[in-house]
Every structure is written in C-alpha cells, then in structure tokens.
C-alpha cells in the first residue's frame, strides 16, 4: 500500500496547477523511491517529468509499484479543498480503485477526506537519454517568465542563442522584433537573483513561446529555473524542489527552413 504524508499541501497544489493545462490524464507511478509522473501533451511536442522523492514526504511508505491513473481536472477540484498549509496524506491500496486524500489543518482539529476514482491509463513512456548539454543557464524563474510573456506579445516563437556574450532571447513578429539579453550575474545578498551561464559550445535554437509560457506556471515552485540546451535536441526546463525532487519540462525545438 501507499501512504505518503506531505508537510504542506501547497507543494502538490502548485505542481498540479503547473501541469494541468499541458496534460490531462496521468499515471502517478509510486514505488519506494517516491512518486513519479511522465506525460506528453496531446501534440507530442512537450513532456512533463515530475519526481517527488520519498524524502519529500514524512513518512513515506510504498511496498509495491503502484500506478495511480488520475485525471488532473478531478485532482484539481479536490486539491482546491485543501488549505495551502494543510498536512496532506495520499493513501492507496495495492490494487486500488481510488486514491484517498486527507487534509489536516495544523491549527484546528479539522480533517477532510476525499477519494478520487482512478482510471486505467495506457501511457506511452519515453526514454529520455542522458545528455551533456552544450549550454546550461540558471536564472530567476520570475525573469524567465517575464521574458517569455513579453516576447509572446510579439511572436509565436523565440530563438534562444547562447554564446560567450551571454544568452539572448529574440523574436520577430508582424509588428516588429524584440530581444532580451542576459549576462552572468552574481548577487551575493540575493542568490536567487543570480544568472549563471555554463557554456561548452554556442547554441541557437527556436521554440514555441506558447509552451514556454505554460511551463512558467511552475515559477512559484522555485526561485530559480535551469534551462539546458544543445543544438537540435529538446530544451530541458527544470524547477528544482527540496530533497532532490523536481519538476522538468522538455520541449521539442522548431527545426529547419
């Protein structure tokens, strides 16, 4: 059986909120290392990969591999009943029909309990190769969100060019063009404001802004976001969570002429 207790419901609320517009029905794969999710959007352009390590829960118990097929719209409805600060416990039997969610208020004696019916989801699972990326950029997640939103007002696509000079986000649209360039930057007092560019070779790739703006819904999960790029491979956008847990998005590039 599965029993996983989260100190704050907020974490799951934010994760689900960040992915629910991209993917609808997902398997939450539970085993003794934690709870994982991998799902592609309908157009097979973007992929979300979540890992909530067992260390992110206290306690965490899962004796067998259990796949919880959950509709994220249903999960969102139930999670709305949880206060951000509530303690959240997920429970399921070994061959479950439902997943049980318990929300406990730390301040009062209120306990709420919900069951969500599970679905049989036959999901394609992709093997993501280990990649040595040519460029890795760490930057404030709010900055990345702002750049994507600003450029989407002009164009559907953004080119991300990374060189020794820095990283340039550029777009061209009907009304004109725009770009934002960031250079490495260290803020000793506020490390969350750092921009770090790690480059082994120059990279230039084009991506759909619609997807990037969608990924940025995860910004509240982490002060920093990491962008990993190599020419002609999907972009990795990573929001690191506590205890080595993470929320990652992969986006296929736009290629050729």
């Amino acid at each position: 059986m599965l029993e996983a207790r989260l100190e704050q419901a907020n974490l799951l609320k934010k994760v689900v909120d960040a992915i629910k517009d991209l993917v609808q029905d997902c398997n939450f794969d539970c085993n003794d290392s934690g709870i994982a999710l991998q799902a592609m959007d309908n157009s097979h352009v973007a992929l979300v990969s979540m890992m909530l390590k067992s260390e992110s829960f206290s306690p965490f118990r899962c004796d067998r591999n259990i796949a919880l097929g959950i509709n994220l719209t249903s999960l969102t409805k139930v999670l709305r009943a949880a206060q951000n600060e509530d303690i959240l416990t997920l429970k399921a039997e070994d061959a479950p029909d439902v997943v049980n969610l318990v929300f406990e208020s730390a301040e009062s004696d209120r306990i709420s309990e919900y069951d969500i019916k599970l679905m049989d989801i036959d999901q394609e699972h992709l093997g993501i190769p280990e990649t040595e990326y040519a460029a890795t950029i760490s930057m404030p997640s709010a900055e990345f969100q702002r750049i994507c939103r600003d450029l989407m007002a002009l164009s559907e696509s953004v080119s991300i060019e990374c060189s020794k000079e820095g990283v340039k986000f550029a777009c061209q649209g009907d009304i004109g063009s725009g770009s934002v360039t960031l250079r490495s930057h260290t803020n000793v007092d506020k490390p969350e404001m750092n921009v770090e560019i790690d480059l082994t070779e120059p990279v230039s790739l084009t991506f759909s802004l619609k997807y990037l703006v969608g990924f940025c819904k995860a910004s509240s999960l982490s002060g920093q976001v990491k962008l990993c790029l190599s020419n002609e491979v999907p972009l990795l956008v990573e929001y690191a969570l506590a205890n080595n847990s993470y929320l990652r998005f992969y986006l296929a590039p736009k290629i050729g002429d």
Partner: peptide
C-alpha cells in the same frame, strides 16, 4: 519558417 518537431524524433519509446 522552421517547423515544430515532435519529441518522438529525439526520445525512444520504452
């Protein structure tokens, strides 16, 4: 204009 690729081109099915 460049065309949107899909992930199947890069990631294998398991």
């Amino acid at each position: 204009p460049p065309k949107q690729a899909t992930l199947g081109k890069f990631f294998g099915r398991t």
